[in-house]
């Protein structure tokens, strides 16, 4: 226990020596773009050793609402408490239709996610948002944009 009395060095356990847990915004990198006047695309690039829960993903858009959004199937995993759950690894790409076309408008995409690391920790649900300018015509997708601010405690 003596080593534990050294203060901050005492915060031990994870991850294994030599590696470091990534902050959630790096473990699960969100970016998004407007594909055409009536479709947004959200993308999570998921670091190796990390995963997101499918049933914790939520996408909403303001001021034009999102249409019905289909999440791709994840990898099934049995969970003793929640039953079968689906998880995403590597990357997740979701197309989010707008309830109505919004050419030229600036929209805010809210993306909520929650994930864990194989090392044995989970991150709190992480609401993020991205501002996107919708293109005025099809065939000219906007650039990928990352969240302007990180974190959930604001």
């Amino acid at each position: 226990m003596a080593g534990c009395l050294a203060g901050v060095a005492c915060a031990q356990g994870l991850p294994a020596e030599g590696s470091k847990l990534l902050p959630p915004e790096q473990a699960f990198r969100l970016s998004a773009r407007a594909l055409d006047p009536s479709t947004l695309e959200a993308r999570f690039d998921i670091a190796d050793g990390y995963y997101l829960y499918r049933d914790k993903m939520r996408f909403t858009i303001e001021p034009v609402a999102a249409g019905p959004t289909e999440l791709p199937p994840g990898k099934r995993k049995h969970d003793d408490f929640f039953g079968d759950v689906e998880t995403y690894r590597d990357a997740l790409v979701v197309r989010i239709p707008l309830a109505k076309p919004a050419p030229g408008q600036t929209l805010t995409l809210h993306a909520d996610s929650q994930g864990c690391a194989d090392a044995g920790v989970c991150y709190p649900p992480n609401p993020q948002q991205v501002q996107l300018v919708v293109p005025t015509s099809a065939g000219k997708p906007g650039p990928f944009v990352e969240p302007a601010r990180k974190g959930w405690f604001k």
């Binding site: 226990m1 534990c4 005492c10 356990g13 044995g120 920790v121």
Partner: peptide
Amino acid sequence: RVVHTQLGPL
């Protein structure tokens, strides 16, 4: 006094 903190499973 805080004698141990543990991130991840104990």
